[in-house]
Amino acid sequence: MIITSDPIIIADILNQGGIIAYPTEAVWGLGCNPHNQASVIKLLNIKSRPMHKGMILVAGDKAHLAPWLVQLSPELQTKLTTHYLSPTSWIVPDQDIAPTWVRGEHQSIALRLSQHEGVQAICQAFKACIVSTSANPAGLDPALSLEQVLAYFRDNIDAVFDVPLGQSKQPSQIKSLLDDQVIRQ
């Protein structure tokens, strides 16, 4: 396992099918290349998370959201790409843009334009969205420190992006882009 603060190294690991741990706005996350089915399945297995639930994709720049933005009205595009006080992941219609192994049983996908500089750096180096799910095995609290990430996943991840955790007090809320219904507070 590699521990680094270099986003280029992290992007190379993602391109090779690796699983990474990285800090987000509030908690540590696990991520991988959403287009690499084997990586997504490995990530789901180490978390004991069922595929049918689907996962969040996190972007560092609105250009990474372009495939979804083109299908939205200008108002919805603005809502998806606006920065909010609390990190917000939006449930967005997905017409076979994201792979089924990321969407799960849904015809939508959860997307977040991250305000966390570390997440932005990873996505910029990777040149795309990455999978974002909390760094915790099912039933345990999300990791809030590098030490906790290592205690949970030391032998199951390929790299750790060692930059500071964001200052948000709770993980991203999840809302429906179309009607503002709160899915997770």
Rank of each mutant, 00 (worst) to 15 (best):
I2E: 14
I9W: 00
I10V: 14
A11N: 04
L14T: 05
G17H: 05
G18W: 01
I19A: 08
I19Q: 10
P34G: 11
H35R: 15
S39Q: 03
S39V: 09
V40F: 05
I46P: 03
S48C: 08
P50A: 03
H52R: 02
G54T: 07
I56E: 00
V58N: 02
V58R: 04
H64L: 00
L65K: 02
L65T: 05
P67D: 10
W68G: 01
Q71S: 14
Q71W: 01
Q77P: 05
T81N: 03
T81C: 11
T82V: 01
T82H: 04
T88V: 15
S89Y: 00
W90Q: 05
I91K: 07
I91V: 15
V92S: 02
P93Q: 08
A98M: 11
A98I: 13
V102R: 06
G104N: 07
S108G: 14
I109R: 10
I109L: 13
L113D: 09
L113I: 00
S114K: 05
Q115C: 15
E117L: 09
G118D: 12
G118Q: 13
V119W: 11
V119G: 05
Q120I: 05
F126L: 06
F126C: 06
I130F: 07
G139V: 14
A143R: 06
Q148G: 12
V149H: 09
A151R: 12
A151G: 09
F153M: 06
R154F: 09
D155R: 09
V160I: 15
P164I: 05
L165I: 06
L165H: 07
P171K: 12
Q173S: 15
Q173P: 03
D179Y: 04
Q181G: 00
